[in-house]
Simulated assay, not measured.
Amino acid sequence: MKIILTQEVSGLGAPGDVVEVKNGYGRNYLLPQGYAIGWTKGAEKQVTSIKRARESREIRDLGEATSVKERLEGLKITLKVRAGDGGRLFGAITANEIVEAVETAGGPALDRRRMTVSPIKAVGRHAVTVRLHAEVVATVNLDVIRAK
């Protein structure tokens, strides 16, 4: 099955890429989740607009990515959340909350889809990885503290 990706899918491609996948994977997962659209000649024309939108969000070159990495790793990011007596959170911290915390701390705007976050469900210090470029990965230290 030939499809056009509308969002980044790890191990498969980036938005605007035309890829060939197995029928079940495309029909049962990628299309219903909105990660892709079916390939047609009319949809092929949308590829340029999808790629243009991707390029505007993407960090342009390796030098810019390394400077953003240095800014991110130098930030002190604190997130206040509701937690129980044992330090266990009422819910989990999402990638959107982390993006907002980075921007509040004075960091650059990030794309939540480029973050690798294991579920954060307890107070303490946690590491979050962000893919800034194909060759640059930043590690952001996040201090989760209990709100009073």
Rank of each mutant, 00 (worst) to 15 (best):
P15Q: 02
V81K: 07
I98C: 06
A138S: 14
I145W: 03
L31S: 02
L132K: 05
P108E: 02
A138W: 06
S118G: 13
P32E: 08
L132R: 04
T40V: 12
R82L: 13
I93D: 03
G24T: 04
Y25Q: 11
I3V: 07
G74I: 04
K121H: 01
S49N: 13
T116D: 10
T139M: 08
G107L: 00
I120D: 09
V117N: 09
S49R: 14
E58V: 06
R52C: 03
A127E: 13
R131L: 11
M115E: 09
Y29M: 10
A134T: 12
A134M: 03
A109R: 08
A138T: 04
A138H: 08
D17S: 06
L79K: 01
Y29H: 14
M1V: 00
V117I: 14
D17H: 10
Q33D: 10
G124V: 07
E135T: 09
V136K: 04
G91S: 05
T129I: 11
T104V: 06
E55R: 14
P15L: 03
K41L: 14
D61G: 08
I77L: 01
K76I: 12
R146G: 11
M115T: 03
G107Y: 02
V128E: 09
L31I: 15
T94H: 11
A92V: 11
A127W: 07
T40L: 09
R146V: 07
G91R: 13
K45L: 13
I93S: 04
R60E: 12
E70S: 14
A138Y: 08
A53I: 01
V18F: 03
I77W: 00
Y29G: 11
R88G: 02
G86M: 08
R27K: 13
G34F: 14
L79D: 03
L142S: 04
T129W: 04
T139I: 14
R52E: 13
Q46Y: 14
M115R: 07
R113L: 01
P108L: 00
G26M: 10
V144L: 14
I98L: 09
H133Y: 10
T78Y: 07
T139P: 06
V81C: 05
L132M: 10
I50L: 15
K148A: 12
T78S: 13
N23V: 15
R60W: 07
H126F: 12
A147Y: 08
Q7T: 01
A134V: 10
G34S: 15
P119N: 10
V123W: 07
F90T: 13
R114K: 05
A95T: 11
L5M: 06
M1K: 03
G124K: 05
D85S: 14
L142N: 03
I120Q: 06
T116I: 09
N28T: 11
F90R: 08
V99S: 03
Q33F: 10
E8I: 00
W39S: 15
H133G: 03
E135S: 13
G24V: 04
G84A: 13
